[in-house]
Structure formats: C-alpha cells, structure tokens
Design a protein around this nucleic acid. Structure first.
Lengths: 208, 208, 208, 208
DNA sequence: GATGAATGAGCATTCATTCAT
DNA sequence: CATGAATGAATGCTCATTCAT
C-alpha cells in the first residue's frame, strides 16, 4: 500500500511504454536510424521526457538487449524442465524460436545489432562483459538442452549451429522483404524445411 | 582506341579506388557509420570529388552490392565446372565461403546490410528488383551445385540452409568480437564443426 | 510566539541550506555551470522544492549577492570600531580580505560574476539599483577606513585600489589553478608581497 | 604564385571574421553565453560553416586566448626596446594597458575567463600547459620591464601587482556598468589615480 | 577534373521552470 | 510541504549534398 509503490509501478509502466516504442522504431529503422525524437513522439511525449526516464539513448538500447537476453533465458529454462526425446527437444526449440520471431522480432534484430561495429562504442567495458556473460549463459542453456548426455564441446557446436541457422534465416528473410519479396513466396514453410535439414545433422552428431 | 576509352578506364580506376575505401570503412564502421567524408579522406580526395564519381552515397553502396553478388556468381560458376561427389562439393562450397570471409569480409557485411531497414530506402524499385533478380540467380547456382540430381525445391532449401548458416556464423562472430571475445576462443575451428553438423543433415536430405 | 514564527524560521533554515549548496556549486562550476538540479541534489531535495523556496534561479544568485555585500558591511563596520594607525589599519583590512578569501571564496567569485554580462539580465532595475547602492556603501565604508582624515575623493581612489588588487589577485590565482599551477608555487606568499607594494603606495597617498 | 595562396589568404580572412564576431559575442554575453549559432549569424554564415573553419567551439576560444597572449607579448617586447626611467616605464606600461582596454576589451575579458571553472574543461593538458607557458613568458617580460636591475623575485611581485590592478579595475568597471553606473561617474579618471597610487608603491619597492 | 566553401536538416542532450497530486 | 513528471527552447556538432571556380 502506499503512494510510493504506485508511483514506482507507474514509472515502470511508462518506461515499458517507451521501450515498446523503441522496439518498434528499432525494428523499422535500425539502430542508427532510431532517433530519440521518434521514440518520444510515438509515446506522445516530449524528447526531454524520454531523457527523464532514460539517461541515454544507449541506456534504452541496453535495456532492450538485457530484456531480450532475459527472455531467452526464461524460455530455455522452461524448456529444460520438460522431458523430451532428443528429436522432440529439437522440435520444441524450433517452435520456441519461431514463436519469438513472431512475437518479438525485435529480439532477433537486437542480436544482429550487437554485431554492428560502433553500436556498443560508448558502452562501458563492464556492461559489455555483462552482456557477454549473460548471452554466454544462454548458449550454455541451449547447449545443455541439445546434448544432455553428450560432451560439452559438442553441445556448444550444436548450440552455435542452431543459433546461426535461425539468425541467418531471420536476416535472409529481412533482406528478402526489403527487396520486395512477398512473405508467402519465401517465408516460413521454407524455414521449416531448412530446420529439418539441420535437425538431421544435429541428431546424427548428438548420437555419436 | 582513343582518348575516350582511356578516360573511361581512368574513371573506372578512380571509382574502384573509392569503392575500396568504402569497403574498408563499411567493414569498420557499419553502413550508418560510413560517411562520405571518411571514404574520401582515405583516398586523399575531397568529398566533392567523390560526388563527381558517384551520384549518391547510396550509389556507392549499390556498387558494392552488385560487386559482391558478381563475385559470388563467378565463384559458384567456377565450382559448377568441377565435378565432385556430393560431399566433396559441400566441402568445396564451405572452403569457398571461408575464403570469401577471409579475403572479402565486407561482402558478408553487405549481405547483412541488405537486411537493414531504410538502407535501400532511396533506391528505385527497378534497382531493387535487379538486386533481387541477381541474388536469386546466385541462390539458383548454389541450389544446383547442391542438388544436381534432386528436385529444385529441395535444392533451394539446401541453399537457404547453407547460406543461413554462413550468414549466421558471420554475425555471431562479429557480435562476439564486439563483446570482447578473442578470435581464438570462439573462432574458425568451431565454425568448421558447425558446418560438419549441417553437412550431415544436407547429405541425408540430398540422398533421400 | 506561535506557529507562524516557527514556520518562518524553518523556512529560512531551508533557504539557508539551499544557499549553502548554491555557494558550493557556484564556486566549483561558475555561474553558468551552476544548475538548479545540482543545487537541489546537494540538499537531497527535488528541483521542484527549490523553486518553492526561490522564485527563480536568479533569486538564488541575488540572495548570495546581498549576503556577501552584507558580510562585507559587517566586517568593515567591525574594523571601523577599532582604532589603528593608518598602516595597522591597512594590515587589518588585508587580513580581513585574506580571511574572507579563505573562508568564503564564493563571495569573491560572486563579485566577479557581477561583472559578467547577462548574469543580471533578468533582474529588475530596482534590484540592480539596490545592489549598486549597498555595494556603494561598502566602498564608502572602506574609503573612510583608509582616509579618515583625508578627503573623500582620495579615500575612494584608495578603496578602489585595494579592492581592485584583491579582486585581481583572486582571479589570477583562479586562472593559475585552472592552468595547472600548484598552489605552492604562486600562492599566498606572493599575494602578501603584492599587498606590501600597494601598501607603500597607499601610505604615501594617504599622507599627502 | 597562385590560386592556393589566395585561397589560403581568403581562408584566414574568413577565420578572422569569425574570430571578430566571436570576440564581440564573448564581450557581450560571456563565455557560456557565447553560442556558435550567434557567432555564425553575425557573420551571416550558417553554423555548419563555422564548424568548417573551426573544429570546435573550444578551438575558437583558444584561438582568441593565444591571440591575446601574443598581442601582449608584442606590446611588451616593443616597450622593452625603449629606454625609459623607471617611472616613465611604469607610465608607458599603464598607457599600453589603457590602450588595450580601449581597443581590445575582449582581451581582458578572456583573461578573466581563464579563471572560470570548467571553461578549459575539454582542453587537453598539453594545450593548457602551452597557455601557462606563454602567459608565464609574458609575466617575465613584464617583470623585466619593471625591475631590470632588481632581483627576479621582486620583479615578479611587481608584475603580479600591476597585472592584478589592471584586471581588478577592469572587472570593477564591468560590474559597475552592469549595475547601471555611467562611464563618466566611475570611469577612467579614477582608474588613473588608482594606478598612480600603485605606482608610488612600485617605485618604492623597485628602488630598495 | 578537382576542390574549397557553404548549408539545411537533423541529432542527442541539457536546463529552468510549471503543475497536479 | 514536497515531489515526480513533463516540456519548450537551446546547444554543440554531424552529414550528405551542391556549386562556383
């Protein structure tokens, strides 16, 4: 009870609204194309207000990064609590991926942005290390799901393989959209088949 | 063989110098971080001169895009003239990919940029279609290499799979570098094993 | 003696707290570098509260100005109650100066700020005149101390001389600090000798 | 003797125009009140153009600082070539000072600004040292003029005394103007008498 | 051909101030 | 009383692009 709690809740809600807007702009315009002005406008707030909630433009980006890492962590943990055959597990991972891509396409976009030079330029070494640590943990989570009985090294390779494939497909999809392809002609069905192909390889490796 | 030809040759040479610089900057700074100023400076030319050779900043980017598409086309054609077993062919494709990544990392970067929104924003529909057409041809080339005897649909899936993996690995690598990973800890050896895993799946699919 | 008085006393206490913070910030950051945000933060109050106690940022500055003028007035009056030879009096004035500089360096800083253009830009003519009047009185106080028997004009010249010297030394000191000089190499000892030099001149003039 | 030289001359002329504007604004508005926008506007140039000639706002300020230091250096050197009695020399120095104050009031203002905190905040340590070195040389020049036969320490004290007086008078004058005093009531005549007072002291010290 | 000069539009960020609660 | 929230107006600076010479 109390005013303070409500205030805090409202504050968090406003921050979330701003982050939502940021996600949307990010998705539409890319990192460098995302301006504080546009984020603010979408919330019908002034730019100055945005800086009341976030110290920096970078802080917004970082919030999104940590959020997406966290989302993945939770999803992977949930998967780890289920018991599946190896193949079922691969299918579940794929379904989770597809769900994320559908519901939070921005999370993939953010992954891609981490690869862009100079995006993390003003971010402190500590924060970078934190990002590296947390995303490393996610890779380990994925790794364990893929190779519970197998060796860690093999698990990591599989985690890399599966993540690379998803990321690659995401980017190809985006590029194709940008070039005018319709979703139908080159979209999800094809992605599923790519995954099947990869799955065959993963099952083979896992069973060695 | 007159003055006009020499002029034209010199003009092309200058353009190539500028493109080289552009590639380097692009690789270091990313699309939005690439400024006409910096490209010009690296060639010890003035910015105004750059605009004498290229109508737009976009035109530079587009030149690079077409160049990289062409490079891939030639490489894939060269591979198609060799006769290999399916597995050998996959290994050759992988080696070609690794070579491109080593010698022309910018070509991968450019592929990624095609996926970035608003990068092609000022590009005419015609040019976009041309890019789509040419890169589509490359996919067909790759597709044929992978599934000479199999059906076209399956070939396309395999081409997608292989390209997605390449692209995904490239991006993961870049992200890891940005986050402070050393090349050694997460670099090429791991990439090779990822490819092996994928290869197992591709061979299975191809032989069905 | 009721609630109203206590209220008023508390109000004055709060104002004093804020003014103290303002003095500190002013000293560290200069007029334009002094922000309402920082003043408030140092008192662990919100910016809005600051504006509850002071109508304006200017009003804070003005309070400080009047405070410093008042401080000088009291000090000079105290000196006027003592009986000294002319030379002793000059030494006392000097000692008072040095004490103010040590204990309230901000008071000198504020004097300097009065010289800065646009600092008084939003201040009403009335208030300006009041400042002029009060600081004029201080000059007269100083003037009388210096030339009790001599003519007023000569006293004013001496007051100007002494004040100019102190102010100038203060500024030179600050500039030297900013440029990296250590306090030791160009500090107080030198100031004392400068004063001695001036004193010789003042004594001569005074005895004419 | 060609185009390049003329270009360079024109460039310097433009820079000088901008510096002139900067001087004027500085004088009217103070350091923090001086905006790149206003400097540019006074030259009927765009802000962007200003940044074509000067890398930074700081670079403009620094140009002015070095310029003023240089101006003093030249003036003091010129004085050192004349042969005067001690008293005549003091009078000459005073006349030079008054001339500078009349013709280049901004040079004094700049001296004052060096004393303001955070004004040199973004300036490299090297540049600060250079400023310190050059202005130190000016003090030595002044010192030598004042005490050619006397010891260096005494010379330095006198240089400090004279410079402090000049600076202090300048500031008092500015403050009085800001407070509404008319030039006539408290201006030059008084300044001259202050100097006479100081001169008496300086002559005494010098002759010890 | 090549370039110095010029610029409009934009961007992240700051600041004094107001107001409802 | 006190404060969280909100903002208009600036500010220093960047960038792609144009144009006269």
């Amino acid at each position: 009870m109390g005013v303070a709690e409500r205030r805090e809740r409202e504050r968090q809600a406003r921050k979330e609204t701003l982050l939502q807007a940021a996600r949307a702009v990010l998705l539409e315009k890319g990192v460098r194309g995302t301006t504080t002005k546009e984020i603010a406008e979408r919330c019908e707030l002034s730019e100055a207000t945005l800086f009341f909630y976030f110290k920096n433009k970078d802080e917004i980006l970082l919030s999104l990064i940590f959020e997406s890492i966290d989302f993945w962590a939770k999803g992977l943990d949930a998967l780890s609590e289920q018991s599946h055959s190896r193949e079922q597990m691969l299918d579940e991972i794929w379904r989770f991926h597809e769900r994320v891509y559908r519901e939070h396409p921005d999370y993939y976009v953010i992954s891609t942005y981490l690869a862009q030079p100079h995006v993390l330029e003003n971010v402190s070494k500590d924060v970078k290390e934190e990002i590296a640590r947390l995303s490393g943990q996610n890779f380990q989570r994925l790794s364990k799901l893929l190779a519970r009985d197998a060796d860690a090294a093999s698990g990591r390779v599989m985690a890399d393989a599966i993540w690379a494939a998803f990321l690659g497909l995401t980017i190809m999809n985006a590029a194709r959209k940008n070039l005018g392809h319709t979703e139908a002609s080159q979209g999800r069905p094809s992605r599923a088949k790519v995954f099947e192909t990869l799955k065959a390889g993963l099952l083979r490796r896992g069973s060695r």
